[in-house]
Design a protein around this nucleic acid. Sequence first.
DNA 1: TAGATTGTTAATCGATTAACAATC
DNA 2: TAGATTGTTAATCGATTAACAATC
Lengths: 205, 205
Amino acid sequence: MATQPVSDVVINRLPLYLRMLEFLEKAGKTITSSQELSECLDMSSAQIRKDLSYFGEFGKQGTGYNVAFLQGQLRQILHVDRAWNVILVGAGDLGRALAHYQGFAAQGFRLVAIFDNAPKKIGLTVGALTVQGMTELPRCVRDRKLQIAILAVPAVAAQAVADELVELGIRAILNYAPITLSVPPEVKVYYIDPVVGLQSMTYYL
Amino acid sequence: MATQPVSDVVINRLPLYLRMLEFLEKAGKTITSSQELSECLDMSSAQIRKDLSYFGEFGKQGTGYNVAFLQGQLRQILHVDRAWNVILVGAGDLGRALAHYQGFAAQGFRLVAIFDNAPKKIGLTVGALTVQGMTELPRCVRDRKLQIAILAVPAVAAQAVADELVELGIRAILNYAPITLSVPPEVKVYYIDPVVGLQSMTYYL
DNA sequence: TAGATTGTTAATCGATTAACAATC
DNA sequence: TAGATTGTTAATCGATTAACAATC
Protein backbone atom coordinates (compact mmCIF):
# COMPACT_ATOMS: atom_id res chain seq x y z
CA MET A 1 0.00 0.00 0.00
CA ALA A 2 3.03 2.34 0.04
CA THR A 3 5.11 3.76 -2.79
CA GLN A 4 7.91 1.24 -2.82
CA PRO A 5 9.42 -0.08 -6.00
CA VAL A 6 6.95 -2.59 -7.39
CA SER A 7 8.33 -5.49 -9.39
CA ASP A 8 7.98 -5.86 -13.14
CA VAL A 9 6.01 -9.05 -12.78
CA VAL A 10 3.31 -7.21 -10.85
CA ILE A 11 3.21 -4.31 -13.32
CA ASN A 12 2.80 -6.73 -16.18
CA ARG A 13 -0.33 -8.17 -14.61
CA LEU A 14 -2.11 -4.85 -14.12
CA PRO A 15 -3.09 -4.52 -17.80
CA LEU A 16 -4.72 -7.95 -17.57
CA TYR A 17 -6.80 -6.80 -14.62
CA LEU A 18 -7.76 -3.68 -16.51
CA ARG A 19 -8.72 -5.66 -19.58
CA MET A 20 -10.89 -8.00 -17.53
CA LEU A 21 -12.61 -5.09 -15.77
CA GLU A 22 -13.48 -3.60 -19.16
CA PHE A 23 -14.91 -6.93 -20.16
CA LEU A 24 -16.96 -7.24 -16.97
CA GLU A 25 -18.24 -3.69 -17.38
CA LYS A 26 -19.38 -4.44 -20.91
CA ALA A 27 -21.14 -7.49 -19.51
CA GLY A 28 -23.08 -5.15 -17.22
CA LYS A 29 -21.29 -5.92 -13.95
CA THR A 30 -20.79 -3.06 -11.52
CA ILE A 31 -19.19 -5.05 -8.70
CA THR A 32 -16.63 -7.83 -8.77
CA SER A 33 -14.34 -9.63 -6.34
CA SER A 34 -10.79 -10.93 -6.26
CA GLN A 35 -12.35 -14.37 -6.40
CA GLU A 36 -14.27 -13.67 -9.60
CA LEU A 37 -11.28 -12.02 -11.24
CA SER A 38 -9.03 -14.89 -10.23
CA GLU A 39 -11.31 -17.43 -11.87
CA CYS A 40 -11.51 -15.49 -15.12
CA LEU A 41 -7.78 -14.84 -15.22
CA ASP A 42 -6.69 -18.24 -13.97
CA MET A 43 -4.63 -17.04 -11.03
CA SER A 44 -5.09 -16.96 -7.26
CA SER A 45 -7.32 -14.37 -5.59
CA ALA A 46 -4.58 -13.71 -3.03
CA GLN A 47 -2.27 -12.65 -5.82
CA ILE A 48 -4.76 -10.16 -7.18
CA ARG A 49 -5.39 -8.64 -3.76
CA LYS A 50 -1.69 -8.46 -3.06
CA ASP A 51 -0.90 -6.86 -6.41
CA LEU A 52 -3.55 -4.19 -5.88
CA SER A 53 -2.42 -3.59 -2.29
CA TYR A 54 0.89 -2.19 -3.55
CA PHE A 55 -1.03 0.81 -4.84
CA GLY A 56 -3.86 1.40 -2.39
CA GLU A 57 -7.05 0.06 -0.92
CA PHE A 58 -9.58 -0.16 -3.69
CA GLY A 59 -12.13 -2.62 -2.33
CA LYS A 60 -14.67 -2.96 0.43
CA GLN A 61 -14.72 -5.84 2.86
CA GLY A 62 -17.69 -8.06 2.38
CA THR A 63 -18.51 -6.49 -0.97
CA GLY A 64 -15.56 -6.54 -3.35
CA TYR A 65 -14.48 -3.98 -5.94
CA ASN A 66 -16.48 -1.43 -7.87
CA VAL A 67 -15.68 -2.27 -11.49
CA ALA A 68 -15.66 1.28 -12.84
CA PHE A 69 -13.74 2.67 -9.88
CA LEU A 70 -11.01 0.04 -9.94
CA GLN A 71 -10.71 0.52 -13.69
CA GLY A 72 -10.11 4.21 -13.17
CA GLN A 73 -7.54 3.57 -10.47
CA LEU A 74 -5.65 1.09 -12.66
CA ARG A 75 -5.64 3.55 -15.54
CA GLN A 76 -4.09 6.17 -13.28
CA ILE A 77 -1.49 3.74 -11.98
CA LEU A 78 -0.53 2.63 -15.48
CA HIS A 79 -0.66 6.21 -16.82
CA VAL A 80 -3.24 5.26 -19.39
CA ASP A 81 -5.72 7.83 -18.08
CA ARG A 82 -4.49 9.98 -20.99
CA ALA A 83 -3.70 9.50 -24.66
CA TRP A 84 -0.20 8.67 -25.87
CA ASN A 85 1.25 9.48 -29.26
CA VAL A 86 3.20 6.66 -30.82
CA ILE A 87 5.36 6.30 -33.91
CA LEU A 88 5.81 3.22 -35.98
CA VAL A 89 9.09 2.38 -37.67
CA GLY A 90 8.85 -0.14 -40.50
CA ALA A 91 6.21 -0.14 -43.24
CA GLY A 92 6.49 -3.73 -44.43
CA ASP A 93 3.59 -6.19 -44.23
CA LEU A 94 3.73 -6.23 -40.46
CA GLY A 95 4.08 -2.47 -40.05
CA ARG A 96 1.16 -1.77 -42.35
CA ALA A 97 -0.98 -4.34 -40.54
CA LEU A 98 -0.14 -2.70 -37.21
CA ALA A 99 -1.04 0.68 -38.69
CA HIS A 100 -4.48 -0.67 -39.51
CA TYR A 101 -5.00 -2.23 -36.11
CA GLN A 102 -7.82 -0.41 -34.32
CA GLY A 103 -6.92 -1.74 -30.89
CA PHE A 104 -4.17 0.81 -30.27
CA ALA A 105 -6.36 3.89 -30.68
CA ALA A 106 -9.18 2.19 -28.79
CA GLN A 107 -6.89 2.14 -25.75
CA GLY A 108 -5.51 5.63 -26.19
CA PHE A 109 -2.38 4.89 -28.21
CA ARG A 110 -2.52 7.17 -31.26
CA LEU A 111 -0.28 6.40 -34.19
CA VAL A 112 1.02 9.76 -35.40
CA ALA A 113 3.65 8.80 -37.98
CA ILE A 114 5.12 5.88 -39.91
CA PHE A 115 8.71 5.68 -41.11
CA ASP A 116 10.65 3.43 -43.44
CA ASN A 117 13.94 3.79 -45.24
CA ALA A 118 12.94 2.07 -48.49
CA PRO A 119 12.36 4.64 -51.28
CA LYS A 120 9.62 2.38 -52.62
CA LYS A 121 7.66 2.65 -49.40
CA ILE A 122 8.11 6.36 -48.74
CA GLY A 123 5.00 8.24 -49.77
CA LEU A 124 2.70 5.22 -49.53
CA THR A 125 -0.58 5.88 -47.78
CA VAL A 126 -1.32 3.57 -44.87
CA GLY A 127 -4.68 4.26 -43.30
CA ALA A 128 -4.71 7.98 -42.52
CA LEU A 129 -0.91 8.29 -42.59
CA THR A 130 1.78 8.65 -45.23
CA VAL A 131 5.03 6.74 -44.88
CA GLN A 132 7.94 9.12 -44.29
CA GLY A 133 11.65 8.58 -44.81
CA MET A 134 13.90 7.94 -41.84
CA THR A 135 15.45 11.38 -42.29
CA GLU A 136 12.19 12.91 -41.06
CA LEU A 137 12.21 10.83 -37.88
CA PRO A 138 14.45 12.95 -35.62
CA ARG A 139 12.41 16.12 -36.03
CA CYS A 140 9.12 14.29 -35.50
CA VAL A 141 10.26 12.65 -32.26
CA ARG A 142 11.97 15.75 -30.89
CA ASP A 143 9.33 18.30 -31.83
CA ARG A 144 6.50 16.22 -30.46
CA LYS A 145 8.56 14.94 -27.51
CA LEU A 146 7.47 11.40 -28.27
CA GLN A 147 8.36 8.64 -25.84
CA ILE A 148 6.88 5.51 -27.39
CA ALA A 149 7.85 3.71 -30.59
CA ILE A 150 6.76 0.51 -32.26
CA LEU A 151 9.59 -1.25 -34.03
CA ALA A 152 8.61 -3.41 -36.99
CA VAL A 153 11.78 -3.55 -39.06
CA PRO A 154 13.83 -6.61 -40.08
CA ALA A 155 16.03 -8.10 -37.36
CA VAL A 156 19.24 -6.93 -39.03
CA ALA A 157 18.14 -3.30 -38.88
CA ALA A 158 16.51 -3.33 -35.45
CA GLN A 159 19.47 -2.53 -33.20
CA ALA A 160 20.56 0.45 -35.28
CA VAL A 161 17.05 1.87 -35.34
CA ALA A 162 16.68 1.26 -31.60
CA ASP A 163 19.92 3.12 -30.98
CA GLU A 164 18.60 6.08 -32.92
CA LEU A 165 15.25 6.04 -31.15
CA VAL A 166 16.92 5.98 -27.74
CA GLU A 167 19.22 8.80 -28.77
CA LEU A 168 16.17 10.87 -29.74
CA GLY A 169 14.53 10.37 -26.37
CA ILE A 170 12.26 7.38 -26.91
CA ARG A 171 11.73 5.60 -23.59
CA ALA A 172 9.48 2.68 -24.51
CA ILE A 173 9.84 0.34 -27.48
CA LEU A 174 7.32 -2.27 -28.54
CA ASN A 175 9.67 -4.53 -30.45
CA TYR A 176 8.42 -6.89 -33.14
CA ALA A 177 11.88 -7.63 -34.53
CA PRO A 178 13.06 -11.13 -33.56
CA ILE A 179 16.13 -9.96 -31.69
CA THR A 180 17.05 -8.98 -28.15
CA LEU A 181 17.83 -5.27 -28.16
CA SER A 182 20.59 -3.64 -26.19
CA VAL A 183 19.29 -0.44 -24.60
CA PRO A 184 20.08 1.61 -21.49
CA PRO A 185 18.26 0.54 -18.32
CA GLU A 186 15.93 3.54 -18.31
CA VAL A 187 14.47 2.45 -21.66
CA LYS A 188 11.78 -0.24 -21.56
CA VAL A 189 11.41 -2.83 -24.29
CA TYR A 190 8.45 -5.15 -24.65
CA TYR A 191 9.12 -8.08 -26.95
CA ILE A 192 6.62 -9.64 -29.32
CA ASP A 193 7.85 -12.65 -31.27
CA PRO A 194 5.20 -15.19 -32.23
CA VAL A 195 7.85 -17.74 -33.20
CA VAL A 196 9.22 -17.69 -29.66
CA GLY A 197 5.69 -18.42 -28.48
CA LEU A 198 5.24 -21.33 -30.87
CA GLN A 199 8.64 -22.77 -30.00
CA SER A 200 7.82 -22.65 -26.29
CA MET A 201 4.58 -24.52 -26.85
CA THR A 202 5.99 -27.25 -29.06
CA TYR A 203 8.13 -28.34 -26.13
CA TYR A 204 4.94 -29.71 -24.58
CA LEU A 205 3.68 -31.45 -27.74
CA MET B 1 20.69 -32.86 -16.05
CA ALA B 2 17.89 -35.39 -15.40
CA THR B 3 14.37 -35.63 -16.78
CA GLN B 4 12.52 -33.85 -14.05
CA PRO B 5 9.70 -31.44 -14.74
CA VAL B 6 11.30 -28.22 -15.93
CA SER B 7 9.50 -24.99 -15.15
CA ASP B 8 7.71 -22.88 -17.74
CA VAL B 9 10.00 -19.94 -17.13
CA VAL B 10 13.00 -22.03 -18.22
CA ILE B 11 11.20 -23.39 -21.30
CA ASN B 12 10.29 -19.87 -22.35
CA ARG B 13 13.95 -18.85 -22.39
CA LEU B 14 15.12 -21.71 -24.61
CA PRO B 15 13.80 -20.15 -27.83
CA LEU B 16 15.78 -17.01 -27.00
CA TYR B 17 18.95 -19.04 -26.70
CA LEU B 18 18.16 -20.74 -29.99
CA ARG B 19 17.52 -17.43 -31.71
CA MET B 20 20.79 -16.01 -30.46
CA LEU B 21 22.72 -19.10 -31.58
CA GLU B 22 21.28 -18.68 -35.09
CA PHE B 23 22.40 -15.09 -35.02
CA LEU B 24 25.91 -15.99 -33.89
CA GLU B 25 26.14 -18.69 -36.53
CA LYS B 26 25.18 -16.22 -39.23
CA ALA B 27 27.87 -13.95 -37.86
CA GLY B 28 30.36 -16.74 -38.50
CA LYS B 29 30.91 -17.87 -34.90
CA THR B 30 31.42 -21.56 -34.29
CA ILE B 31 32.04 -21.38 -30.53
CA THR B 32 30.36 -19.32 -27.84
CA SER B 33 30.19 -19.24 -24.06
CA SER B 34 27.57 -18.71 -21.38
CA GLN B 35 29.30 -15.38 -20.77
CA GLU B 36 28.91 -14.21 -24.35
CA LEU B 37 25.31 -15.37 -24.55
CA SER B 38 24.52 -13.68 -21.25
CA GLU B 39 25.82 -10.35 -22.47
CA CYS B 40 23.83 -10.51 -25.71
CA LEU B 41 20.66 -11.60 -23.95
CA ASP B 42 21.04 -9.39 -20.90
CA MET B 43 20.85 -12.11 -18.29
CA SER B 44 23.35 -13.88 -16.03
CA SER B 45 25.69 -16.54 -17.35
CA ALA B 46 24.83 -18.73 -14.37
CA GLN B 47 21.20 -18.73 -15.43
CA ILE B 48 22.05 -19.87 -18.93
CA ARG B 49 24.28 -22.68 -17.67
CA LYS B 50 21.64 -23.75 -15.17
CA ASP B 51 18.85 -23.72 -17.75
CA LEU B 52 20.88 -25.88 -20.12
CA SER B 53 21.91 -28.23 -17.33
CA TYR B 54 18.30 -29.40 -16.94
CA PHE B 55 18.66 -31.12 -20.29
CA GLY B 56 22.22 -32.33 -20.51
CA GLU B 57 25.85 -31.34 -20.71
CA PHE B 58 26.37 -29.48 -23.93
CA GLY B 59 29.58 -27.57 -23.31
CA LYS B 60 33.24 -28.15 -22.73
CA GLN B 61 35.13 -26.76 -19.77
CA GLY B 62 37.60 -24.14 -20.77
CA THR B 63 36.10 -23.82 -24.24
CA GLY B 64 32.40 -23.15 -24.14
CA TYR B 65 29.65 -24.34 -26.48
CA ASN B 66 29.76 -25.35 -30.11
CA VAL B 67 27.19 -23.06 -31.73
CA ALA B 68 25.85 -25.54 -34.28
CA PHE B 69 25.75 -28.43 -31.83
CA LEU B 70 23.93 -26.51 -29.11
CA GLN B 71 21.49 -25.24 -31.69
CA GLY B 72 20.71 -28.80 -32.72
CA GLN B 73 20.26 -29.89 -29.12
CA LEU B 74 17.89 -27.01 -28.39
CA ARG B 75 15.86 -27.83 -31.47
CA GLN B 76 15.47 -31.39 -30.28
CA ILE B 77 14.50 -30.30 -26.79
CA LEU B 78 11.91 -27.85 -28.10
CA HIS B 79 10.70 -30.32 -30.75
CA VAL B 80 11.47 -27.91 -33.53
CA ASP B 81 13.81 -30.37 -35.26
CA ARG B 82 10.83 -31.07 -37.51
CA ALA B 83 8.18 -29.07 -39.35
CA TRP B 84 4.79 -28.33 -37.79
CA ASN B 85 1.58 -27.68 -39.64
CA VAL B 86 -0.44 -24.81 -38.28
CA ILE B 87 -3.89 -23.39 -38.99
CA LEU B 88 -4.94 -19.80 -38.71
CA VAL B 89 -8.42 -18.80 -37.62
CA GLY B 90 -9.44 -15.26 -38.50
CA ALA B 91 -8.86 -13.57 -41.85
CA GLY B 92 -9.17 -9.93 -40.83
CA ASP B 93 -6.34 -7.43 -41.20
CA LEU B 94 -4.31 -9.16 -38.55
CA GLY B 95 -4.96 -12.68 -39.82
CA ARG B 96 -4.01 -11.76 -43.36
CA ALA B 97 -0.84 -10.05 -42.16
CA LEU B 98 0.11 -13.14 -40.19
CA ALA B 99 -0.54 -15.26 -43.27
CA HIS B 100 2.00 -13.17 -45.15
CA TYR B 101 4.61 -13.32 -42.41
CA GLN B 102 7.60 -15.30 -43.66
CA GLY B 103 9.02 -15.86 -40.18
CA PHE B 104 6.76 -18.81 -39.39
CA ALA B 105 7.80 -20.95 -42.34
CA ALA B 106 11.43 -19.91 -41.87
CA GLN B 107 11.31 -21.63 -38.48
CA GLY B 108 9.39 -24.68 -39.63
CA PHE B 109 5.83 -23.60 -38.87
CA ARG B 110 3.85 -24.15 -42.07
CA LEU B 111 0.50 -22.46 -42.43
CA VAL B 112 -1.76 -25.02 -44.08
CA ALA B 113 -5.21 -23.41 -43.90
CA ILE B 114 -7.03 -20.20 -43.02
CA PHE B 115 -10.59 -20.03 -41.70
CA ASP B 116 -13.12 -17.29 -41.14
CA ASN B 117 -16.85 -17.28 -40.63
CA ALA B 118 -17.63 -14.11 -42.62
CA PRO B 119 -19.15 -14.96 -46.03
CA LYS B 120 -17.33 -11.94 -47.44
CA LYS B 121 -13.97 -13.37 -46.51
CA ILE B 122 -14.53 -16.97 -47.53
CA GLY B 123 -12.90 -17.62 -50.87
CA LEU B 124 -10.43 -14.77 -50.61
CA THR B 125 -6.90 -15.63 -51.59
CA VAL B 126 -4.28 -14.87 -48.97
CA GLY B 127 -0.78 -15.67 -50.14
CA ALA B 128 -0.89 -19.26 -51.35
CA LEU B 129 -4.05 -20.10 -49.38
CA THR B 130 -7.77 -19.62 -49.81
CA VAL B 131 -9.92 -18.61 -46.85
CA GLN B 132 -12.31 -21.42 -45.90
CA GLY B 133 -15.51 -21.29 -43.90
CA MET B 134 -15.54 -22.47 -40.30
CA THR B 135 -17.60 -25.48 -41.31
CA GLU B 136 -14.51 -26.87 -43.04
CA LEU B 137 -12.39 -26.57 -39.92
CA PRO B 138 -13.25 -29.81 -38.10
CA ARG B 139 -12.35 -32.04 -40.99
CA CYS B 140 -9.11 -30.21 -41.64
CA VAL B 141 -7.92 -30.44 -38.04
CA ARG B 142 -9.02 -34.06 -37.58
CA ASP B 143 -7.82 -35.44 -40.90
CA ARG B 144 -4.43 -33.82 -40.60
CA LYS B 145 -4.21 -34.40 -36.85
CA LEU B 146 -3.20 -30.78 -36.34
CA GLN B 147 -2.10 -29.65 -32.90
CA ILE B 148 -1.28 -25.97 -33.33
CA ALA B 149 -3.60 -23.06 -34.13
CA ILE B 150 -3.16 -19.33 -34.40
CA LEU B 151 -6.18 -17.41 -33.16
CA ALA B 152 -6.72 -14.01 -34.72
CA VAL B 153 -10.44 -13.43 -34.27
CA PRO B 154 -12.19 -10.61 -32.37
CA ALA B 155 -12.20 -10.92 -28.58
CA VAL B 156 -15.92 -11.67 -28.46
CA ALA B 157 -15.52 -14.73 -30.66
CA ALA B 158 -12.25 -16.04 -29.24
CA GLN B 159 -13.49 -18.23 -26.40
CA ALA B 160 -16.03 -20.04 -28.58
CA VAL B 161 -13.44 -20.70 -31.27
CA ALA B 162 -10.92 -21.84 -28.66
CA ASP B 163 -13.49 -24.27 -27.26
CA GLU B 164 -14.00 -25.73 -30.71
CA LEU B 165 -10.27 -25.99 -31.39
CA VAL B 166 -9.68 -27.78 -28.10
CA GLU B 167 -12.57 -30.13 -28.83
CA LEU B 168 -10.96 -31.00 -32.16
CA GLY B 169 -7.66 -31.87 -30.55
CA ILE B 170 -5.65 -28.67 -30.83
CA ARG B 171 -3.05 -28.59 -28.04
CA ALA B 172 -1.30 -25.25 -28.58
CA ILE B 173 -2.91 -21.89 -29.31
CA LEU B 174 -1.07 -18.73 -30.25
CA ASN B 175 -3.70 -16.23 -29.15
CA TYR B 176 -3.84 -12.74 -30.61
CA ALA B 177 -7.31 -12.00 -29.24
CA PRO B 178 -7.17 -9.57 -26.29
CA ILE B 179 -8.78 -11.95 -23.83
CA THR B 180 -7.67 -14.59 -21.35
CA LEU B 181 -8.88 -17.93 -22.63
CA SER B 182 -10.25 -20.70 -20.50
CA VAL B 183 -8.80 -24.03 -21.63
CA PRO B 184 -7.99 -27.40 -20.02
CA PRO B 185 -4.56 -27.66 -18.40
CA GLU B 186 -3.12 -29.90 -21.12
CA VAL B 187 -3.68 -27.16 -23.70
CA LYS B 188 -1.03 -24.44 -23.92
CA VAL B 189 -1.87 -20.85 -24.78
CA TYR B 190 0.69 -18.19 -25.63
CA TYR B 191 -0.70 -14.67 -25.45
CA ILE B 192 0.22 -11.84 -27.75
CA ASP B 193 -1.42 -8.51 -26.98
CA PRO B 194 0.57 -5.43 -27.97
CA VAL B 195 -1.71 -3.16 -25.94
CA VAL B 196 -0.82 -5.06 -22.78
CA GLY B 197 2.83 -4.41 -23.64
CA LEU B 198 2.28 -0.71 -24.17
CA GLN B 199 0.25 -0.39 -20.97
CA SER B 200 3.00 -2.09 -18.97
CA MET B 201 5.59 0.31 -20.33
CA THR B 202 3.62 3.51 -19.76
CA TYR B 203 3.74 2.74 -16.04
CA TYR B 204 7.41 3.73 -16.17
CA LEU B 205 6.90 6.89 -18.23
C1' DT C 1 -26.70 -9.66 13.03
C1' DA C 2 -24.66 -13.18 9.81
C1' DG C 3 -22.15 -13.65 5.78
C1' DA C 4 -18.76 -12.22 2.77
C1' DT C 5 -14.55 -10.30 1.23
C1' DT C 6 -10.81 -7.26 1.82
C1' DG C 7 -5.88 -6.05 3.07
C1' DT C 8 -1.97 -7.92 5.22
C1' DT C 9 1.08 -10.99 7.57
C1' DA C 10 3.97 -14.84 7.92
C1' DA C 11 5.12 -19.10 5.84
C1' DT C 12 6.09 -21.48 1.85
C1' DC C 13 7.63 -22.15 -2.38
C1' DG C 14 10.46 -21.46 -6.37
C1' DA C 15 13.88 -19.00 -9.07
C1' DT C 16 18.31 -16.75 -9.37
C1' DT C 17 22.99 -16.20 -8.28
C1' DA C 18 27.62 -16.66 -6.36
C1' DA C 19 31.15 -19.55 -6.02
C1' DC C 20 34.10 -23.27 -7.05
C1' DA C 21 35.71 -28.04 -8.04
C1' DA C 22 36.25 -30.38 -12.21
C1' DT C 23 38.39 -30.45 -16.43
C1' DC C 24 39.22 -29.23 -21.17
C1' DT D 1 51.17 -26.17 -17.86
C1' DA D 2 48.23 -21.97 -17.28
C1' DG D 3 44.01 -20.09 -18.41
C1' DA D 4 39.33 -20.50 -19.19
C1' DT D 5 34.76 -22.11 -18.72
C1' DT D 6 31.60 -25.63 -17.60
C1' DG D 7 28.15 -28.02 -14.50
C1' DT D 8 26.51 -27.99 -9.93
C1' DT D 9 25.87 -26.87 -5.16
C1' DA D 10 24.32 -24.14 -1.53
C1' DA D 11 22.90 -19.63 -0.33
C1' DT D 12 20.22 -15.85 -1.40
C1' DC D 13 16.68 -13.56 -3.09
C1' DG D 14 12.02 -12.77 -4.52
C1' DA D 15 7.32 -14.20 -5.54
C1' DT D 16 3.24 -16.73 -4.26
C1' DT D 17 -0.01 -18.44 -1.10
C1' DA D 18 -2.58 -19.66 3.05
C1' DA D 19 -4.78 -17.83 6.63
C1' DC D 20 -7.20 -14.57 9.33
C1' DA D 21 -8.30 -10.23 11.77
C1' DA D 22 -10.74 -6.33 10.34
C1' DT D 23 -14.88 -4.66 8.73
C1' DC D 24 -18.43 -3.69 5.38
